[in-house]
C-alpha cells in the first residue's frame, strides 16, 4: 500500500512525502493497513471541528491505488477530529517522512 501524506503543523510548517508499506517495518505497515481504511478516513474528514481550537495539526492523506486502473482517494482532516490510534500513526508517519528527507539530504 502506498500513501501520500502532507502534514501542516499548527505552527505553519509543512512536511510531505510518499510512503510504501513495503519499505516500512512490518508492524508499522500492518497498522497502516488496519487503520487507514477509506470508510474511517471519510468519517474523520467529515467530522465537525470545535471552532475555538487554534494551531491544530492538519493532514492531507492520499491512498494511492494498488493497480493502474484504480483511483487515488484523498482525505483532509485535523487531528482534532481523529482518534488516538490514528493520531499516533500519523505522528509516526510524519516522523518517517522527516527521516526520509534527512537521509536524502545527507546522501545528496
Amino acid at each position: 500500500m502506498k500513501i501520500l501524506l502532507r502534514t501542516t503543523t499548527g505552527q505553519g510548517i509543512t512536511l510531505e512525502g510518499q510512503l510504501d508499506t513495503a519499505d516500512l517495518p512490518e508492524d508499522l505497515g500492518n497498522r497502516i493497513e488496519k487503520i487507514l481504511r477509506p470508510r474511517r478516513l471519510s468519517a474523520v474528514a467529515q467530522a465537525p471541528v470545535r471552532r475555538s481550537m487554534a494551531d491544530m495539526q492538519h493532514y492531507e492523506l492520499t491512498l494511492l491505488p494498488k493497480s493502474s486502473r484504480g483511483k487515488p482517494r484523498k482525505f483532509e482532516f485535523s487531528d482534532a477530529a481523529a482518534g488516538d490510534d490514528l493520531v499516533e500513526l500519523l505522528d509516526e508517519l510524519t516522523h518517517e517522512i522527516t527521516l526520509q528527507k534527512v537521509r536524502a539530504l545527507s546522501k545528496g
Binding site: 512536511l15 481550537m53 491544530m56 505522528d91
Partner: peptide
Amino acid sequence: HRKNFNNAFWNGSQMAYGDGDGII
C-alpha cells in the same frame, strides 16, 4: 504531548506542547 510532536496548540480549554522530534 505526543511522541516526536512538532507542535503546540490551544484546544479551546487548555494548551498542549510537544517536545519536538529533535530534528526539526
